[in-house]
Computed example of a mutant assay.
Amino acid sequence: MLFKIFIVEDDEMLLSLLENFLQKYGFETFCVRDFDTLMEDFRTFQPHLILLDINLPKYDGYEWCKQIRKNSNCPIIFISARDSKMDQVMALEYGADDFITKPFDYEITLAKIKSHLRRAFGTYATLSNQRIVEADGLQLNLDRLTLAWKSNTVELRNTEAKILDLCMTQIDCVVSRDQLLEKIWDDQAFVDENTLNVYIRRVRNKLDQLQLNGSLQTIRGEGYRLRSIWREIT
Rank of each mutant, 00 (worst) to 15 (best):
S16P: 01
S16Q: 13
S16R: 12
L17A: 15
L18W: 12
L18Y: 11
L18G: 03
E19R: 15
E19S: 14
E19Y: 07
N20H: 06
N20M: 12
F21S: 06
F21Y: 15
F21Q: 08
L22N: 04
Q23A: 15
K24V: 07
K24W: 08
G26W: 11
F27A: 10
E28Y: 09
E28V: 07
T29F: 12
T29K: 14
T29W: 14
F30N: 09
F30V: 05
F30E: 10
C31V: 03
C31K: 06
V32K: 06
V32W: 06
V32S: 07
V32M: 04
V32Q: 07
V32L: 09
V32G: 05
R33C: 03
R33H: 10
R33L: 09
R33D: 09
D34Q: 08
D34E: 11
F35D: 06
F35Q: 05
F35N: 01
T37M: 03
T37W: 03
L38N: 08
L38P: 08
L38I: 10
M39Q: 01
M39V: 02
M39A: 03
M39P: 00
D41W: 10
T44A: 14
T44W: 12
T44V: 14
T44Q: 15
T44I: 12
T44N: 14
F45W: 01
F45A: 01
F45T: 01
F45I: 00
F45K: 02
Q46M: 13
Q46S: 04
Q46A: 10
P47F: 05
P47R: 08
P47E: 09
H48K: 00
H48A: 04
L49V: 11
L49Y: 14
I50E: 02
I50P: 00
I50Q: 02
I50F: 03
I50N: 00
L51F: 06
L51N: 03
L52I: 01
L52M: 07
L52Y: 03
D53E: 05
I54R: 01
I54V: 01
N55V: 15
N55G: 13
N55Q: 15
N55K: 15
L56Q: 09
L56S: 04
P57F: 06
P57H: 02
P57M: 07
K58R: 06
K58P: 01
D60W: 12
D60F: 13
D60A: 09
D60I: 12
D60M: 08
G61S: 08
G61R: 13
G61W: 12
Y62C: 07
E63S: 14
W64M: 04
W64I: 05
C65Q: 13
C65W: 11
C65T: 13
C65D: 11
K66G: 02
K66D: 07
Q67P: 01
Q67F: 11
Q67A: 05
R69C: 00
R69P: 00
R69Q: 01
R69L: 00
R69H: 00
K70H: 09
